[in-house]
């Protein structure tokens, strides 16, 4: 038992990291994976692998919350894509994921998607909550100006102007991103 206890101490920080990711991003990841796979059990497997990949790449997690979320979501989607691409239902050899990496072209696709997603999520995260809420209601939840005004309890004119400034601010933040894919990001593409 004493051996087990000392192992438990060693792994505390690893487990804390995984727990923190799960607590903060788990709902988003599982909902997304469930929609993509149409299968809750398969989705849980995908989320498990996503969290494991994040744990293996702690350098990704030093970014802001938004880009961490963007990274995780894109990895989730890539895992689903790769599994369908692989067609055959084979077990995931988790100890060797890096050795069974997808073909280079797929990796390149993944790299661009991941960077796009990270940059955009980071930009969204930097919007003021008021602006972001309007954008989420209108774009991601598909509500009209009138419905959004009702849901957020603000006048329609405010909804329109917030949507406008949110989109413009996003474009500015997005346009200011550094060109090309930073090497550091490519290294963490999984």
């Amino acid at each position: 038992m004493s051996q087990l206890r000392s192992r438990a101490r060693q792994s505390t920080s690893d487990e804390a990291l995984v727990r923190a990711l799960y607590e903060e991003h788990g709902r988003a990841l599982l909902a997304y994976a469930t929609r993509l796979t149409g299968d809750r059990a398969a989705a849980e497997d995908v989320v498990q692998e996503t969290l494991i990949r994040a744990w293996r790449h702690p350098e990704v997690l030093t970014n802001g919350k938004g880009s961490v979320r963007g990274w995780l979501l894109t990895v989730t989607r890539n895992i689903v894509t790769d599994r369908y691409r692989a067609k055959a239902s084979r077990p995931t050899e988790v100890a060797e994921v890096s050795e069974t990496a997808a073909a280079p072209s797929v990796q390149r696709d993944h790299a661009e998607q991941i960077v796009d997603s990270m940059v955009l999520m980071e930009a969204l995260d930097q919007l003021s909550p008021d602006h972001r809420d309007v954008l989420v209601e209108i774009y991601y939840r598909g509500h009209t100006v009138t419905e959004t005004a009702g849901r957020l309890g603000i006048p329609e004119g405010t909804v329109k102007s917030r949507a406008h400034y949110a989109l413009k601010a996003l474009r500015e933040k997005y346009a200011r991103r550094p060109g090309g894919t930073p090497a550091r990001l490519q290294e963490v593409v999984v």
């Binding site: 487990e15 903060e24 709902r27 988003a28 929609r35 989320v47 979320r69 955009l120 989420v136």
Partner: peptide, 23 residues
């Protein structure tokens, strides 16, 4: 490029086993 689920926060419901398996 960002899915609507990106704006959900917190841990998933009824997924404790998922966390335990991951740990």
């Amino acid at each position: 490029t960002v899915p609507p689920e990106a704006f959900l926060d917190g841990p998933p419901d009824d997924a404790d086993l998922l966390l335990q398996r991951t740990l």
